[in-house]
Structure formats: structure tokens, C-alpha cells
Amino acid sequence: MKIPLILVSFLFAVNLHAQDIFGNWKTIKEETGEARSIVNIYQEDGKVFGKITRIFEESKRDKRCTKCKGEDKDEKVEGLVLLKNFTKEDDEFVDGTITNPVNGKVYDSKMWLDEENPDILNIRGYVGFFYKTVHWERVD
């Protein structure tokens, strides 16, 4: 039985989309499993960035990043670009930074899709030899 070319093309396109980090991701509070925000990951000038596009808790939508430094100082958290300057290296995005809008700290970071589930994005922030990895969920 021959598989129609259109079906093969569709299946290939679906698989490519599933492996793509670009788009919307739901951030999850690790301790409670509560969804906190939506971050849109996009590419600009060959680098990868992520911007908070929605904070779920309405009372926090106008909160400012008062502890941030530089250009992010006192910017609204909803709308803040918290992932900056990642580059693709093999199956990972590396050499970027992530900002914690709660304390204003900026961490070296890398991110990659989970091998078992491409709808999970692993993001790791570093302080020296110490690191923490969080997991975000893809939003359709």
C-alpha cells in the first residue's frame, strides 16, 4: 500500500512542530503545580528570547520588576522579556540568561525539549556550579 504524499508531508510537518521550542509555554509553580503565566518564545536576529505575555493571577498583572536592574528596572512583569540571547547548539539552546522577576536576579541558562515529551521544555539556570531546572508545558 502506498501512502499518499500529502499524508507523508502532513506527518512530517506535525513532527517538526512537536520538536520546535517556539510558541507559548505555561510556567508552573514547582511546589504546587499551579500555572503561573504564559511565556512566548521567539527568535529575533538569530537569537532566542522569551516574553511573559500573560500572568494568570489578575492581581499580579500590573506588578513591576522593582528589583531588576538595567533596562528591566521597574518594567511591568507582564510583558517582560525574561529569556534572552539563547543560541541553538545541537538539541539545546545555550548561552542565554533568565531573569527571576521576583528577586531581579539574572542567571546563565540553557533550555531543551524533554526527550520523552516534546511538550515539556526544560529550563536550567546556573549560579556557579549550582543549578536549578524548571519544566514548562507547551500551550496549544
Rank of each mutant, 00 (worst) to 15 (best):
T87M: 08
E92A: 12
K67L: 09
I6Y: 15
E30K: 12
I120S: 09
T53S: 01
L121K: 08
T27G: 13
G46P: 04
T66I: 03
K26P: 12
I28W: 05
D72K: 08
E71W: 10
L7M: 13
N85L: 10
V139K: 05
F49Y: 14
P4D: 15
L121F: 07
K105N: 09
F129W: 13
Y126P: 15
T27D: 00
S37V: 04
T66K: 11
A13I: 04
I120M: 14
Q43N: 11
I120G: 07
E78H: 00
G23D: 00
G70D: 06
N40M: 05
G70H: 01
G128P: 06
F56I: 06
E44S: 10
I120D: 07
K2T: 13
D72W: 13
T97E: 12
Y42M: 05
Y131W: 15
V77T: 02
L82W: 03
N15W: 07
L5T: 13
D140T: 14
K105T: 14
A13N: 11
V94D: 07
R124P: 05
Q19C: 03
V102D: 15
F86I: 03
D114A: 06
D62A: 04
W25K: 00
D140M: 14
K60A: 10
N100R: 07
T99R: 15
W25V: 03
K132Y: 03
E31L: 11
F10I: 14
P118T: 09
V81H: 05
V39F: 02
N85V: 09
F86Y: 01
V134F: 08
E92I: 08
V134M: 13
L82C: 03
S9G: 14
